[in-house]
């Protein structure tokens, strides 16, 4: 019972903090919007706000803790915020019925291009950038760097001798 009451109190506190922080975010977004229209900025207010908040965080003018609750919630529930515009497409029902099939085929092809193109390019460059990092680190501090390299390789799941050996272990165990 006591535990339940405690939990409830915690939840209420959490909810209050969340509402407070989200309102602060809304107010800030509104101010940025006004600023953007006032200075006739070609950059929308929300992106100005993003840059300002990032600057405030980087300069340690506001602590990370004071925005993290609302930021996590806003990003987590992003889908909810764009459902209304999506539902509004019923205004264009006729258009979509007519071109729906072409549209989806087109988008499938286009998305395949973007996905594969980006993945290939990044894969190639990443191997290069990673190698350069390795060389630089080994030149600086051979003993210490080997551990960090192993760690990054593990995290980024690169096909390296180190990660290969860990992958083999279960198979070897089975064989044994």
């Amino acid at each position: 019972m006591a535990l339940l009451a405690q939990l409830k109190q915690l939840n209420i506190k959490h909810a209050c903090m969340l509402i407070l922080q989200v309102s602060a975010f809304c107010g800030f977004a509104w101010l940025c919007q006004i600023l953007a229209t006032y200075i006739h900025s070609p950059i929308p207010g929300s992106v100005i706000g993003l840059a300002l908040l990032l600057a405030l965080l980087s300069l340690k003018l506001i602590p990370e803790r004071s925005v993290e609750l609302a930021a996590t919630w806003l990003i987590g529930e992003l889908l909810l915020f764009f459902i209304p515009p999506v539902v509004a497409v019923i205004k264009y029902q006729a258009l979509l019925e007519h071109f729906g099939a072409i549209l989806i085929t087109t988008m499938l092809a286009a998305s395949t291009c973007v996905l594969l193109g980006t993945a290939f390019a990044v894969d190639k460059l990443f191997k290069f950038e990673h190698k350069k990092r390795l060389q630089r680190q080994t030149a600086e501090a051979p003993e210490h760097s080997l551990q960090t390299i192993r760690a990054t390789e593990k995290v980024l799941s690169l096909p390296t001798p180190a990660s290969n050996s860990t992958q083999k272990t279960p198979k070897e165990r089975q064989a044994a």
Binding site: C32, S46, E64, E68, L74, F82, P84, V87
Partner: peptide, 26 residues
């Protein structure tokens, strides 16, 4: 009619954009 209240939800897209500063910082 659908939009008369739900446009407040859509308006939350702006603060959500600003919230993206946190993952960049982290």
């Amino acid at each position: 009619d659908y939009f008369s209240y739900t446009h407040y939800l859509a308006a939350m897209l702006a603060p959500a954009t600003i919230a993206f500063a946190l993952p960049i910082y982290r």
